[in-house]
Design a protein around this nucleic acid. Structure first.
Lengths: 219, 219
DNA sequence: TAGACTCTTTAGGAGTCCTAAAGGAGTAAA
DNA sequence: TTTACTCCTTTAGGACTCCTAAAGAGTCTA
């Protein structure tokens, strides 16, 4: 019950879910001879590895040191799920990309825990929107502090126009698809993301969190 | 951006934060010669280890196998942070408790990441409440499916009376402290938690998620 | 063409995490 | 009371994670 700050309790809740994600990752990955890290690398490569990512990018996406990433990538290479080539543009760097088999594995690994998905889907659309909005704000703050890798979120995208419509169910606009949308459609990792300039991102951020424009409820 | 289900995006967001928690745990723990698992064990023991927890309870709380927990506890024992005794009631079981030094370490390890806390505190009280409520619902569902260890949440507590007041800022009542409270005061791991019977918990749960009584907004 | 960087790999070590198997301690039925 | 479970914990073995530190290569700049 009551009466100390909600912050620590929110974090405790997030940690609990983190625990669930972690233990799920082990079960999931274990089943197909992968470890969580390896599965995660496959997923990252699948999501945005068109031209191949460099090792340092992989390491950053997973928030581990390059040494750790190098190990894991080597393990994947020896399983023929991943290919390493020297990058043409920079002879020091390496381009890591999926093999055909790797792509198949990646697709399977990217499927989210049914149970977790089911738990989230049980929330109303309004609650999901509120949750997504709160998560977005937390992630953005963590990114500004350099605590987690920058992700391809609406709020840092040059196509994002927050709170431009009076409609509370869909106040934002995406200039990429040229359509309005609401908090429940906010993205965390958008394939079409194009990083906004720092100024633009800061401006959009101010609009986004602007208290007077915050939707009170939608249901 | 838009127009597929928000579920996967919510999970992506949770995963991002999980990443931040994980990398923070390494930094934090590394500083004092502990690993994340060891720090976590200390925290669990500090939070509810009055009479000492058995190994299997520790393993369950961390969502690892008993073998892993046994290793980590041995490591802590060799650092004199933890004590192991045979349990009187059951000669097979072992009672693990903190030493004086362990208690001090536990107190320090329990402090949450400043940056994360700061990010959460930046949300309005209403947003924090909505977040906590949504997390509570997700966790409860995961628990029902046996995916994470049962935690000492309001919604499974015999003292919890959801939605008994019309006041939208504080609709619930805690019979332990005999006071009303709102979503922002919901607990995830309450020291005074007393597990409700299954029937009672199910009833409270129905009341808690009851759509007609869901607070629309509070600000 | 020297540094001075940058990107990646290797080495070494503690620890995580699993499965499998082996003790010892309780329990319950023959 | 003995035998046959069953439960709690530990050990063993193996693949990986994760770190720091240092070394090898490649690139850029003065």
């Amino acid at each position: 019950m009551p009466h100390d700050a909600p912050g620590p309790r929110v974090i405790a809740g997030l940690a609990k879910i983190g625990l669930a994600l972690k233990s799920h990752a082990w079960q999931q990955a274990g089943g197909r001879g992968l470890t969580p890290t390896q599965a995660q690398i496959l997923t990252v490569l699948g999501a945005r590895g068109q031209g191949g990512l460099r090792l340092s990018e992989v390491a950053e996406a997973l928030a581990v040191t390059p040494a750790t990433a190098s190990d894991a990538v080597s393990a994947l290479e020896s399983k023929s799920l991943v290919r390493k080539r020297r990058q043409a543009a920079d002879g020091r760097a390496v381009a890591i990309s999926l093999t055909a088999r790797g792509r198949r594995e990646a697709a399977r690994a990217a499927v989210w825990p049914d149970v977790l998905l089911e738990a989230v889907d049980e929330l109303s659309e309004y609650e999901q929107g509120a949750l997504l909005r709160a998560l977005t704000r937390i992630i953005r703050r963590l990114q500004l502090r350099g605590k987690i890798p920058v992700s391809r979120m609406c709020v840092t995208c040059s196509y994002f126009r927050p709170h431009v419509y009076p409609d509370r169910a869909a106040p934002h606009h995406c200039a990429f698809v040229d359509a309005p949308f609401g908090d429940a459609a906010l993205r965390i990792d958008c394939p079409d993301h194009v990083a906004a300039s720092e100024d633009q991102a800061a401006g959009a951020w101010r609009e986004f969190i602007h208290p007077e424009r915050r939707p009170d409820h939608v249901v």
